[in-house]
């Protein structure tokens, strides 16, 4: 564990908490993509299957449980409790166009061809692109509430911090995982446009509104 890894995990945790607070406080999931949230639930479940096979550390187990539980709690709030506020007309991204290619890629490029390893790899590829329905929703409506912007910033920062963690680990421990590094770089790149808008608008107190 190094400072970049810890900061990344905390940023990830903060993102999830911000999202739950936004939905709970406003009693609404307007502006949030249910499609992205479904993809994140698929990511956590397919990646954390090793919860039942391997014990790594208490920290590792607890964080995995928090990510899985909170992701299902978010889905419950969106699709059951505050269903009436869900913006499904704008949330029209076809997630099968992400799920299928990621699965095929995981079958082709993986560290070893075993069910758990392929599912882990699938989750890494899927996580890289899971935010696309959310970014698509923001671009369709042309704006995002400030708390939604903070959520996206924390979620994007998490993988960017992991990239620093991987650079650190490569030099400090000789540890690297090309699949995670490649997917993490793509994941971070997808947020760049949003990061720019966040820094130039939201941090200056303005609403995140896309140029017409």
């Amino acid at each position: 564990m190094n400072i970049f890894r810890l900061a990344g995990d905390l940023s990830h945790l903060l993102a999830i908490i911000l999202l739950l607070i936004k939905i709970w406080k406003t009693r609404s999931c307007a502006g949030i993509s249910g499609k992205s949230q479904i993809l994140f639930a698929v990511v956590y479940v397919s990646r954390y299957l090793d919860l039942v096979t391997t014990f790594i550390s208490l920290y590792n187990t607890l964080m995995k449980l928090v990510f899985i539980t909170s992701s299902f709690a978010t889905l419950y709030l969106m699709y059951v409790k505050f269903k009436a506020t869900y913006d499904h007309n704008h949330d029209s991204f076809r997630i099968e166009f992400l799920l299928l290619p990621c699965f095929v890629l995981a079958l082709l490029i993986n560290a070893s061809f075993t069910p758990l390893e392929v599912l882990w790899t699938f989750s890494i590829y899927l996580e890289a692109v899971a935010i696309l329905p959310q970014l698509f929703l923001v671009s369709k409506t042309g704006e995002a509430e400030s708390i939604t912007s903070h959520y996206l910033f924390a979620l994007g920062s998490y993988r960017a911090l992991y990239l620093l963690n991987w650079i650190y680990r490569y030099y400090a421990e000789g540890h690297y995982d090309l699949i995670a590094i490649f997917a993490g770089a793509i994941q971070t790149i997808l947020y760049c446009d949003f990061f720019y808008l966040y820094i130039t608008k939201v941090l200056k107190g303005k609403k995140l509104q896309l140029p017409a």
């Binding site: 890894r5 391997t54 070893s112 758990l116």
Partner: peptide
């Protein structure tokens, strides 16, 4: 490509 499971990262 790197190590196989188990992975110590989240």
């Amino acid at each position: 490509y790197g190590g196989s499971l188990p992975k110590d990262e989240l």
